[in-house]
Design a protein around this nucleic acid. Structure first.
Length: 213
DNA sequence: CGGCTGATCGTG
DNA sequence: ACGATCAGCCGA
């Protein structure tokens, strides 16, 4: 019944190939609230030390970027803007820091939808508590919260319960955090666009290295 | 549009 | 040690 897990050879390819191939695959995370499965619908490629948009541009191999230098299939989860996590999967092999940023998923089944909604509601209510506002209930929350569950890298991590505790995990070996086969995607279903949020990357900001269904 | 938020990393 | 920077999200 359970779909087949992606192995090392899948991830041990270049970052553009791995990114496009990840579309339609299923990200699986076992959380305290249950197992969440998300169909990957939007990704971006970060192509290593020569890519001005990458954290590893110019060979910045630091404690933070270390997971990108690890074997293809290694998770790279980092904190952005002081409040959100972003989830990447390393491509290629040890020493070559290419990676794929996961930007958007949709729930793969009803159970996953339930968990994602609960996790997003929980996060939203933490915000409301800081603002001194009454918490939402499942019924009183804005409809957009239900419809835009995990469409953005920060929201994806919230909805799938991904935190920095999930950083530098070998997703080929882990039993709690991995990727499986999913939908068959035709090349004609894949759109490409500019990567988001890297205005500082000069000409690299215009490369069409974002892929989505 | 601006505010939120804190780890990270280059610079002194 | 310090401070600018950020591969986002939300609400006005």
């Amino acid at each position: 019944m359970a779909a087949e897990r992606l192995e090392r050879d899948f991830f041990a390819r270049d970052g553009l190939t791995v990114a496009k191939e990840l579309l339609g695959k299923i990200l699986v995370h076992e959380t305290g609230c249950g197992t969440v499965r998300g169909i990957i619908t939007e990704v971006e490629s970060y192509m290593g030390e020569t890519d001005k948009g990458s954290h590893t541009y110019g060979g910045r191999r630091t404690e933070r970027t270390e997971p990108m230098y690890h074997a293809g299939g290694t998770s790279y989860v980092y904190l952005i803007y002081g409040m959100y996590s972003c989830m990447n999967i390393a491509a290629m092999r040890e020493g070559i820091p290419q990676a794929v940023l996961l930007r958007s998923v949709i729930p793969a089944d009803e159970e996953s939808r339930r968990i994602m909604t609960a996790l997003r509601l929980e996060e939203q209510n933490r915000r409301r508590a800081r603002q001194g506002k009454a918490p939402y209930t499942a019924d009183s929350c804005p409809g957009t919260l239900q419809k835009s569950l995990a469409d953005g890298p920060g929201k994806l991590c919230i909805a799938m319960g991904i935190t920095r505790a999930d950083n530098d995990i070998d997703m080929v070996k882990s039993n709690k955090f991995y990727v499986t086969e999913g939908q068959v995607i035709q090349a004609s279903q894949i759109r490409a666009g500019k990567r988001i949020g890297i205005d500082y990357a000069e000409e690299a900001a215009d490369y069409l290295w974002r892929f989505y269904l």
